[in-house]
Each structure stands twice: as structure tokens, then as C-alpha cells.
Computed example of a mutant assay.
Amino acid sequence: MRRGVAELPLHGGRAPKWLFELMVKLAREIVVLLVAELGRDEFLEKMGSPHWFQSLGCVLGFDWHSSGLTTTVTAAIKEALRGLEDELGIYVAGGKGKTSRKTPDELRLKCDRAGVDADKLIYMSRLIAKVDNTAIQDGYQLYHHVFIFTGEGEWTVIQQGMRPEEQLARRYHWISLELDNPVVEPHKGIWTTRIEPKVLNMVARESVPAQERVVELAREHPNKLVKEYLKMPEFHKITTEMINPNRLYQVMLTTYEKQPKNFETFLTTEGVGPKTLRALTLVAQLIYGTAPS
């Protein structure tokens, strides 16, 4: 995975209306020209590149070192393609905040128009959000999710998370054209102000053994897991202040009933979130010695 370090402070507010309108006009011409000259796949490649995307924001006239570049540029492209999506074969769904939660509905509507398998893209949209919010625990909470796809079913995803207490943001780029495994080194790149010293990265290649152990634990009945906890020395004990035992029990009961076949299906199980994954990762390390990245 490529990692980029750049200024990306978290800024509030929104772009002035006059600026956004100009950005939309310029973005429309750039996208139309790119698709005509280089094709749809190349457009996705460029949007999937953190460096190219950042440069595009500068060309469109937005603040070069602001978290707002991500949200404003993707919003400008989405607006620029309004009425041109079917002609160009490029579609945009999602956005910032509440709009991001409408992504599945937008994808279904636009996939029907494009003749693309909506269920497949909706699944990938949810999986990608789960990876960057749960499998990677870096302290940044996702608040922006944009899914760009073509009539051929290829796609790129641009997500952004924030750390409001420190006024920082972090952007995550994905692209289907270079994706081998969505839960092993899946990113095209991550754009961030700093490298965090303590991160749980369960999609790092080094975490694959830990993934396998977590899935094994997820298939066990919760009662057995409780007994495993009780066998641990006192200094390994997990207290109720650290986790909600009733909530964890219910989630583990769900994974036991579902019997996930791999880490991807475990991660997409309803109810599995950051705390569940942290708890199982810790147990896997204590019992089996499989340390995550």
C-alpha cells in the first residue's frame, strides 16, 4: 500500500457558492476530456491516486491543504456529471455525512440505469466502509464515502475520516482495477497529515495469521470463549469497563450461527464493529500468539 504524508487539517464550513459553481464547470470539462482522450478506466486510475486527486483539487481552485478538498472536489465532480452520467458511462454515488448513508440507494438506482450488478457494488461499498472503520483502527471516524463506477462495473472509492479532537483528517483511496483481495493490503493509498504511532491494521499482510485466528474464534460458541477468558491469568483479565459483555455475547452468538468462512465474511457480519474485532484480536494473540500489525 502507498502511504502519503501531507497537510490535511480538519476544516469546518463549506466552499463559497461562487467558487463551487466554478469548480463544477471546470470539473465537467476535465472529466469529459479525460474520458474522451484516455478512457473510463484511466479516469478511475487517476481518481484512485491520492496525489493526482490532491492536484486536481488545486487545479479546481480549492484550498490545497484542507480536509474540505476531499468533500468539495468529489461533490463538484458529482454535480458536474449530472445529466452526463449515461453518456460518459461514469456514475457517482455517496458524499459527506448523511449523503454517505444514502450510497446504497443511489448505487441501486444508478446501477439499474447502467446495467451493472447493483448488489455487487453495494456489497463492496459496505465492505470498504467496514474495512476503513473497523479493520483499520487508527482513530479516524469515517464521515465521507464516495463511490465512482463505470458502465463496465469497475470502480474507485474515496473515503475520509476525521479526528476532531486534534483537527485532523485522513483520506483512503481504493480502486477495483488493482484490487486482489479486499482484506489484504487493499488500498491504492492513504493520504494523511501524520503517521499514527498506534494503529490496529487487520488488513496488513502481516495480520493474515491473526485474521485466521479471529475467524476461528468467531465460529466458537460464546460460552466457550467465556471459559477461555476465565482460564487466563488475572493480569490478562478483560473487565466490563473495557467491553460490554452482553453486547459482545450477542455479536459472538451471531458469528457462531453464521459460521463465517473467512475474515471478509466475518467483517461483514451484522453487529461486528471495532470493539468486537479488538476483543477477538486480543484473545487470538493471548491464546495463539498471533500478533496483528
Rank of each mutant, 00 (worst) to 15 (best):
A36M: 05
G115A: 11
E206Q: 13
M1E: 12
T150M: 05
R14G: 07
E178W: 08
E7Q: 13
L44G: 03
A135C: 14
V92E: 07
M47V: 13
H144S: 07
G4R: 12
M252W: 11
R28S: 12
D63L: 05
G153E: 09
I77N: 00
R113A: 13
R101N: 15
G68W: 00
E154V: 04
E29Y: 05
V35W: 02
A135K: 08
E220A: 13
F235G: 04
Q137W: 08
T193G: 15
F43S: 01
N262I: 11
E154M: 08
M47N: 06
P50F: 04
T192A: 14
R101L: 15
A284Y: 01
K78L: 04
I148N: 02
G161R: 04
L179S: 06
G189W: 03
E220C: 12
R108E: 15
A210S: 14
H144E: 11
G153L: 10
E154Q: 14
I122T: 01
E178H: 11
L60M: 07
N133L: 09
I30A: 12
K96D: 11
V24Q: 08
V131I: 15
A118M: 06
R3D: 08
F266N: 09
A93Y: 01
Q159D: 08
A76E: 03
T268H: 12
M124S: 04
Q285G: 09
A169F: 02
L69G: 00
E87H: 15
S293I: 08
D132H: 12
R40Q: 12
G273W: 06
E212F: 02
L127H: 07
N181F: 02
P260F: 09
E165S: 14
G271F: 07
S293N: 13
I287L: 15
T103D: 03
T281I: 04
K231L: 13
D63H: 06
G151M: 02
R205C: 09
L168Y: 07
L177Q: 13
L142S: 12
T70W: 01
D132L: 10
P197E: 14
T290M: 03
V24K: 05
A135E: 05
L177V: 06
F20P: 00
K224M: 10
I148H: 01
L56P: 00
I90E: 05
P197K: 14
V203H: 10
Y123N: 01
G94C: 08
G95V: 03
P209Y: 04
K102L: 15
R2E: 13
R14V: 12
K110A: 08
L225V: 14
E87K: 14
T156W: 02
L230W: 05
R219A: 11
V208S: 10
G94P: 00
P222I: 08
